[in-house]
Every structure is written in structure tokens, then in C-alpha cells.
Design a binder for these strands. Structure first.
Lengths: 237, 237
DNA sequence: TGGGATTTGTTCCCGCGTTCACAAGCTCTT
DNA sequence: AAGAGCTTGTGAACGCGGGAACAAATCCCA
């Protein structure tokens, strides 16, 4: 009975991409935070930082930070810490920020406009190459050196600019249709701000940001605080 | 060994708060999604729905949905399903949406404006009662029947409107200071859109929404897709 | 009234992520 | 040159959440 790759999730025979193979999702979600902290330290002239310092800057546990970084490789020096500039470069590279990502925004309402004007995207490796809206009254309007395009041109714009990432800021009702069209046109990653559940084929990544839900989660905790207060008072009586 | 149908792990002596004691965070985060699905079904005239139907509408597994709902209590009927309107009311109540939550927005830039204009908040139990900005040039400007107030009035506004939830949409540099002042003024829940890690005392909840980070996570997966494509081609050769 | 069909509520198990704790390894001083 | 003092990288333990599977409970129909 040979121990073929069955019951063996990871093969130690991999040449290099071994590190990139299985970075946990939870770690991926934190890498951008580390990146931001490193950039901040870098700008301040810091050359070296320990895991403890980095962890404090990023708002996490130092053990977690070390384990996260260990998935990328061994970029620290024992007894010293991490070279800030080097680590920053490595994280940026492995996240995929050494290149510029063209992005299309569909739905130029309040939120779509705000995103289009937000300078933080450009400085972090994302370039908004097209704004699309279904409202004919808004088509043609200029915004941040871009002219709003009609929904009909969506597919052409995606292909023309080789867009891989689409942002949906439409009303809920239009979200699924827009998502379908984005996927058909070749987009394989979607950031969905519409308050709707959208389904996509395998191989397409969707991340959802729902502002109302965030507030509702806070409201739940607020209510619990009030309830706790009440029972505490009751108990002390 | 009698198969007594009891073996009850829960004490039936508790009045009500037993259920509310330990709802997992992951479940809390999904309840608003269920709520939205239920509202949608309700508007469509649906009276009863099975866990399978609800789960599909919410984009989750039916077992997960049943378990989530079981934390709230037994609101379903075996062999039938859930009463849509009743379940909707119960979730709304337990989340804390039977009351209106006053909210203050600090930082009326692109995003702050978009949030102020967003109608979805009001319809979901949140009322924006104040807009605050540090820029004297913007103070006084009217937005959605609210006049932008100077940062100096923050504390007074929080107290006046009994604000428990604050939204930070300032630049990163101002976020920690604003958070400190919000907390001092009595705010115990913060929704932070600023690309900065903010620290708050125990008992204060912070949720962070970082748009750049969401895109960066997508970028990582995009890059991996490209890499996979390359290695697949290589392997097939 | 009883049996079958249906659907919930729950238990059990598994895998992921977090945290602790420590060995390995580097630097600096004496 | 050797040891003291740090700091990283990681093995192991633990707790939480997800999913399958099943028993309990309700409805429907003959």
C-alpha cells in the first residue's frame, strides 16, 4: 500500500509555489492590513520591526502575525525582526499588487460615485477604467475624467480594458443581472455592494459589503448591552 | 438503558433571555440576511417557507439556517416550515430593530455623503441624526435635511440625540481621535470606514469596513487564478 | 383514527483558525 | 570565542463553526 496522495492534502514535493498553495483565507484577509501598517512604518523611516511592534500596529496578536507571515516564507531574522521595506514588497507581490488591476464600476449612484472619486484605490494598485449606469439620463456625464457609459457597452468595456474585477453598486434588483453579464463578459472577481445575494458560477469570487448589515450587527450588540445593564441592575437590587 | 426522550441539556426554567445569552457571532452576522430574505418573501405574499426555501433565498446551507434559527428559539413547525411574517418579526426584535437607532456620521467626504443619502438605512431602523465634519468650509452646508456641524459640537450632538452608534468616514489620520471622542461622549458602537486600525476600550464594539482591502483580497485570488492557469498549461505540456 | 410523508431541531463529527509555548537561530558583548 | 539575550518560526492543544444525519413532531389522507 503506497501512500499515494490520498489522505495527504499537501504534497511536500512542490518546487516553489508550495508557499502560495495554501494560504488560509483568514490570513489573506489580514495581509492587506499588514501591508498598510508596513507602509506607514516605512514612511516614518522605520527600517526594522519586531513581530510585536507590527502586531500592535495592525491590531492583532503577535503570534498570529508571525504565523500569517510564515505562510509567505521566512522573511524575518531571529533576534532582530523583520525588514520593513522588504517585507512590504514581498506581501505586495504575493497579494498581487505589483501590477495594476483595471476595475469597472456598475451603478453610479451615491455609493458608486463615492467609490469613483475615492483616491485610495488608485494608490493601492487599482485603476477604475469604466463607469457604467443603466439610467440614460446619467450616461455621458463626466466623473473623474471618465464618461459614464450605458449598460449596453458593459461587455465591450470589460473586454477592451481586460477587466478582471467588477464592482456592483446598483439597486438590489439589478444586481444579479449585472453579475451575470459581468461573468459572461469575462470578469472573475466581483465586489458586491448591492443588498442582494448573488450567485455566480464556480471559479468566480464574490465579496459582499453590506452597509446596513454592519449597522444591524452593531445594533444587536447595543441591544444586548442595554439588556445586560437592565439585568445587572435587577440582580443588584 | 431507557431511551428516555428527555436528556434535556437546556433548563426550561429560564424565562426568555436564555436564548439571547449565547448566539454565535457568525449567526448574528447572518440574521440580517435572513431578515432581508424574509421581508422579500413577505412582500411577495408568501405565508410559509421551509428551511430549504429560506436557505436558498439567503444563499446558505439549509442545515446552517436551521441551526441559526434554533438559537433564537423554536419558531418553526415540523412538517410545515416557518411562518414568514412571524419569523421576520422575531428576528427583527431579537436583532434590536424594533426600535430606531440614532446614528451620527463623522466625516462628510465622498463616502460620508453617500451614506447620508443612502435611503436603505432609514428603512432598516437607522436614523441619521447628525453630520459632523472638521472642515469649516463645509460646516453649515445642508445635506438631506441636515446641516453639517463642526467637530466641536460632536459631544453635544451625541448626548442630545442619545446616539449609541457612530460612523467614521474621515481620513485615516483623524480616525483614532474621532473614535476617542465618540467613546468619551458615550458612543458604544462604531462603524469605521477609515483605513486605519482604531483601538477602543472594552465594552465598545468596532466593525471595520475597508474597501481597498476587499479589492486586495480579490486581487490575490485573481493572481492565483492566473498562476494556476500558467501551471496547468505547463503541466499539460 | 392510524400510518405515511414531510420538515424541524439537535447531536455528532470534522476541519479550520487561534493561541500558547518552546526550540532554533541570530546578534552583541565581554 | 563563548555565552547571554532576543526574536522568529512552528508544533501541539483547543475552541468554534459547518455539515451530515437522524430522531422528534406535525400534517394529511384514507
Amino acid at each position: 500500500m503506497r501512500t499515494v496522495s490520498r489522505t495527504r492534502p499537501r504534497e511536500p514535493a512542490e518546487p516553489v509555489p508550495d508557499a502560495a498553495r495554501g494560504i488560509p483565507d483568514a490570513t489573506i484577509a489580514r495581509l492587506p492590513v499588514y501591508l498598510r501598517s508596513l507602509t506607514s512604518l516605512c514612511d516614518r523611516g522605520t527600517v526594522t520591526a519586531s513581530s510585536d511592534e507590527l502586531a500592535r500596529a495592525a491590531g492583532v496578536n503577535s503570534a498570529k502575525l508571525r504565523k500569517d507571515l510564515s505562510y509567505l516564507g521566512s522573511y524575518g531574522t531571529r533576534g532582530v525582526g523583520y525588514d520593513v521595506a522588504y517585507l512590504r514588497y514581498e506581501i505586495a507581490r504575493q497579494i498581487g499588487l505589483s501590477q495594476d488591476w483595471p476595475v469597472v464600476i456598475v451603478g453610479v449612484g451615491n455609493l458608486g460615485q463615492a467609490l469613483a472619486k475615492y483616491a485610495g484605490f488608485r494608490s493601492r494598485g487599482f485603476r477604475i477604467v469604466a463607469l457604467v449606469d443603466a439610467d440614460p439620463g446619467r450616461v455621458g456625464e463626466a466623473l473623474e475624467q471618465l464618461r459614464i457609459r450605458p449598460l449596453a457597452e458593459l461587455e465591450a468595456l470589460v473586454e477592451q480594458h481586460q477587466v478582471a474585477i467588477g464592482v456592483i453598486t446598483t439597486p438590489a434588483g439589478a444586481a444579479q443581472d449585472v453579475a451575470d453579464r459581468l461573468v459572461t463578459a469575462g470578469v472573475t472577481s466581483i465586489l458586491n455592494f448591492a443588498p442582494a445575494v448573488i450567485t455566480v458560477p464556480d471559479g468566480v469570487d464574490v465579496r459582499k459589503v453590506d452597509l446596513s448589515i454592519e449597522l444591524q450587527i452593531l445594533a444587536y450588540h447595543e441591544q444586548r448591552k442595554l439588556a445586560h445593564l437592565a439585568t445587572d441592575v435587577g440582580e443588584s437590587a
